[in-house]
Simulated assay, not measured.
Amino acid sequence: MIVRSVFAAAAFLIAALMGSCMFVIARYRIPEQFTVFSMIVSNYGLYLIPLGLAGAGLALLARFRAGRVMRWGGVLIALVCAAGVVAAGFPVVASWQDADRAGATLSVKDYLKGGSNNGKPDERRSVAYNTIDGKDLLLDVKLPPGTPEQPRAAVVWVHGGGFAEGDRGEGPKWHQWLNDRGYAVFAVDYRLSPPPRWNEAPADVKCAVGWVKQHAAAYLVDPERVMVIGGSAGGNLALMAAYAGEQVPPSCPVPDTSVKAVAAFYPAVDLAAMYSDPALVSKVDTLARDYTGGTPGQVPDRYAAASPITYVRQGLPPTLLIHGTRDHVVPYTQSVELVERLKAVGVQYQLQPIPYGEHAFDAGWGDWGTQISRHVLGEFMIKKFPAR
């Protein structure tokens, strides 16, 4: 009796999870409290298949020698779990189809052993690239091993966090991945909001780019081959650094802040368009107000100045955008809108959608979206920004 009750309770909980995940797979616009289930589908979707099968099995076992209510309840729970298994297969199939279109090879082994892509700053590698109001702005220098025969290409990596949190320790496996391909990585901090940093954060990133160029010889870096990459708020700032030109001066006296290419993961490119979007989590509005100092109606000029789409023009560097199609923090339509503008003015671009991908899908290093992203970013850099 006790064992049967435990089986039934476990099966019920699994069925509730599978039912919630079915709901977010079937719909894009979901209540905010269901966003966590969208993240589960995005980052751990493959695990739902064996979990659902286990739930169905437990439900059927709980029916053994049970009363009528338990028997019929067990059937219902098993059916929900089975339907969840079928639904969980849709994101898996879509990911493999997109990988095939991109020429990427997905690995179940990599998915299972990938682990987390979260990290912390490495104080042993930290260097101050600017000092403002007595506080150092730091970057971590991560170099490939050995001495290159020719100066290396460099990547300035910009962390996300809604302009209000996060640090240069974000994405350590991306940094190592770049090092393994011969790129020097400079992971940067910048001033966070509040107070409003709409003009200061992009200025800090441009300062960091200029600092890398000024100190290129010390790190065996080619100052003419610098790229900037970031995700979310970092994607916004990476695009700002690549696009804004003289309209956004750096926060330190550096003569050259130009870059050869830019890649942005799920970037916020039009802050005003995102504000009050009913499909997004409510925190987005708060972050936008903290960053700009008001609403789009109150400070429209700041929203425009802090949006990379404002600066689209001819002559911008090649741009790669990677964005989850189920992003409930920065909608996928943001990247679509940007590439339409880039196409209109003749800028080289590439947009890679991640099917069923939520915001920050690459926090899981083995996730299907991350595997696709590694291939796409690698091919983009070989063509547009080779390490040698």
Rank of each mutant, 00 (worst) to 15 (best):
A238I: 07
E165L: 14
V376E: 15
Q350Y: 02
P296A: 01
G324M: 06
A244I: 11
G57Q: 07
Q348D: 09
L237I: 08
Q371D: 15
W157E: 08
L13Y: 13
I30N: 03
G134H: 14
L239F: 12
T286K: 08
K213V: 00
V329F: 07
V24C: 08
S38T: 02
D100Y: 01
K109F: 08
V345W: 12
G324E: 04
G297V: 05
K206H: 13
A244R: 13
P144D: 05
V158A: 06
F385G: 15
V93L: 11
N199E: 15
I354G: 07
A66G: 10
D327N: 12
V69W: 12
L51C: 05
A233N: 10
K383D: 15
G378D: 03
V336L: 14
A99S: 12
K384W: 08
V24P: 03
Y266W: 12
L53M: 06
V3Y: 02
L271E: 01
V228K: 08
Q298A: 06
Y219H: 13
A272G: 13
L280E: 07
S38R: 04
D180T: 03
A306D: 04
S335P: 01
V299H: 10
G297A: 14
Y349F: 09
A66V: 08
N179S: 05
D222S: 07
R326A: 13
W368G: 11
K113T: 10
G67L: 13
D167Q: 14
E358I: 10
A363L: 13
V269G: 02
T257R: 15
A272W: 07
Y303A: 09
V156A: 10
G73S: 08
K109S: 07
A217L: 04
G119M: 05
